[in-house]
Each structure stands twice: as structure tokens, then as C-alpha cells.
């Protein structure tokens, strides 16, 4: 460029642009909470549910290309009881890091994506009653000298996923442990197999399933952090839909819906790594 222009106006424009976007998001999030969400779903004739597509046994795509898993069974039951047909449902495939954004921008009605309830998240979304519980676990290769959390000191690398409870827990409580972060579960577990980290931390339920499927790996911790619960989430302030889901979960627990779902959806994946279903599911407590 022959006439270099001062950088300042450009920077100023960029900063203004950024604040403009922030303002837009804030306006958008504070609006549109008042409509009756149940009526909206019924008028639309389908409920839009955010689930995972790559996290068996909770949310995955089966051989026929259909959504399946423990979360999905509950989602279909909600559609059946709300709209009279379990197929009146649209599944949106989510990533761990974009779940809150999908709810905040009205892209989904309910999130059933293995969503752990935390105080931080509860400020941004409303959780209904839990249908599962989970703590953090750590998995490592059988041959690894790491046999417990304490073994992770001394420059060892722990693999976690961005935006998950595991990332938050280790960042806060064990800042000295070196973390290697990935966006996708697929990448994280592949990195462990490739030896790019010494161990991998994730929700214990996911690890039970993974260690059952992948020989040569051991669960070294299965109950870290505060035993958290997993619950459906709705948009902040959507009390109508949340109350409906709460009542539904109470009734489903009474008919042992979750125990049945454990047997059909989870047990084939966990094998004997979980002996008591109550270690994983919650029946109306």
C-alpha cells in the first residue's frame, strides 16, 4: 500500500463491531421468554430436542441412521406423552461446547445431551429433575504407572474435552496437572490410544462404556468431584416446560422407566463395570 493509513480507526471500528454483537446477543437472550413454550411445541406439532450423535450409549446414530441411546429413549417418550406420537420429534446433533448456545438462541426446546448440572450452567439454562448421576473418572492404559489421581503429577499429561465438567474440575482444583484439550470425544479418545497423553478424564459413565469396549485400558478413578447429576435442560425462564418435564420424570420413575432404559440401553455398553444400576440412574429422588 502506498499510503499506509493509521491503524487506530480500524481498531476502533473492530471494537465497536464487537460490542454491537454482544449487545445483540444480550437483547436476544432477554427477550422471547414469555411465550407459552408448551403451546408453541403443540402448535408446531413436533418437539425439537438437542442430543449427542457420537456419544454411545447416551446419544448416538445407530446402524439404520436413527438417533438412539439412553437420552434418546427419554426424548422419544417425552414426544410420545406430549404430542401423542414418539416420532413427532426433531433431533439436533450437538457438540458439548455449543449446548448452552443452542438453548439460548431458541434453536432447541429441550437438551437431552448427557448434560451435567452445575451451578455455572444453571445460571444460563434451567435444569429439570435429574434422570442420571455421574462423577468424574480417569482412564489410563493397563501398562501405565498411573494408578490413581495422585499419579498424574510430575509433568504427566491429562486429556480432557473442551467445555466439559472434567475440564472445569481439573482447571480449578488441580491447576498443576498439564491438560491436553480437544473439541471432540472422537479426537480425545484417539489421542489417548495414540499415547499423546498419559490418561483421559471424562464423565465416569462414558468411561465405563469405553473401558468395556476397549481392552487394554483401566479405570483408575471412578468417583472424583461432587457426584453430579444429569438432567434435561430448557431455556432459562421456561418454567412451563420445566414443570411439565419435572412431573413427567416423577411419573416415569414410579413406573421404573429409567431402570428399564438402563437395562436396554446402558447395560449392553457397560457390561460388568457397573454392578448396581443405582450407581448410574436416578429413580425420582
Amino acid at each position: 500500500m502506498r499510503h499506509p493509513k493509521p491503524l487506530l480507526p480500524f481498531l476502533a471500528a473492530a471494537v465497536l463491531f464487537g460490542f454491537g454483537l454482544l449487545a445483540m446477543v444480550n437483547v436476544g437472550c432477554s427477550r422471547r421468554n414469555d411465550a407459552d413454550s408448551l403451546a408453541k411445541i403443540k402448535n408446531r406439532g413436533k418437539v425439537v430436542v438437542g442430543v449427542f450423535g457420537d456419544k454411545p450409549p447416551f446419544g448416538y446414530i445407530d446402524r439404520q441412521g436413527r438417533n438412539a441411546g439412553y437420552d434418546v429413549v427419554l426424548a422419544r417418550r417425552i414426544a410420545a406423552d406430549l404430542l401423542g406420537d414418539e416420532n413427532k420429534i426433531e433431533f439436533i446433533t450437538l457438540e458439548a461446547a455449543n449446548r448452552v448456545a443452542f438453548l439460548q438462541s431458541n434453536k432447541v426446546d429441550i437438551i437431552l445431551a448427557n448434560f451435567t448440572r452445575t451451578p455455572e450452567r444453571a445460571e444460563k439454562v434451567d435444569f429439570a429433575k435429574p434422570y442420571m448421576k455421574v462423577a468424574l473418572g480417569i482412564v489410563a492404559p493397563d501398562a501405565s504407572p498411573v494408578s490413581a489421581l495422585a499419579g498424574l503429577g510430575g509433568g504427566r499429561t491429562l486429556i480432557v474435552n473442551k467445555g466439559t465438567t472434567a475440564e472445569a474440575y481439573f482447571t480449578k482444583n488441580y491447576p498443576e496437572i498439564k491438560l491436553l484439550k480437544f473439541d471432540q470425544n472422537t479426537e480425545a479418545f484417539q489421542a489417548l490410544k495414540d499415547g499423546r497423553g498419559d490418561a483421559l478424564a471424562h464423565d465416569n459413565t462414558l468411561l465405563f462404556a469405553w473401558a468395556h469396549e476397549n481392552k487394554g485400558f483401566k479405570i483408575v478413578e471412578s468417583n472424583l468431584g461432587n457426584a453430579d447429576v444429569i438432567a434435561p435442560a430448557v431455556k432459562k425462564g421456561d418454567t412451563v416446560l420445566r414443570a411439565w418435564i419435572d412431573a413427567k420424570i416423577d411419573r416415569l420413575a414410579a413406573e421404573h422407566f429409567f431402570l428399564n432404559a438402563f437395562q436396554t440401553e446402558l447395560h449392553p455398553f457397560f457390561g460388568d463395570s457397573v454392578r448396581n444400576p443405582d450407581d448410574v440412574i436416578i429413580e425420582g429422588k
Binding site: G53, D54, K55, P56, Y60, I61, D62, R63, I92, T93, L94, E95, A97, N98, F102, K107, Q184, N185, T186
Partner: peptide, 19 residues
């Protein structure tokens, strides 16, 4: 595009890998 919920060929592959 996976970040906006579009299931492209890479995401499809990841779903198949997980299963």
C-alpha cells in the same frame, strides 16, 4: 459446520467411528 448443528461428512464419520 458441525458447530451450527449441520452434520457433514466429517461429523458423519465421527458418528460411525463412535458406534
Amino acid at each position: 459446520v458441525v458447530i451450527v448443528g449441520v452434520v457433514d461428512v466429517v461429523k458423519r464419520s465421527q458418528q460411525i467411528i463412535e458406534r
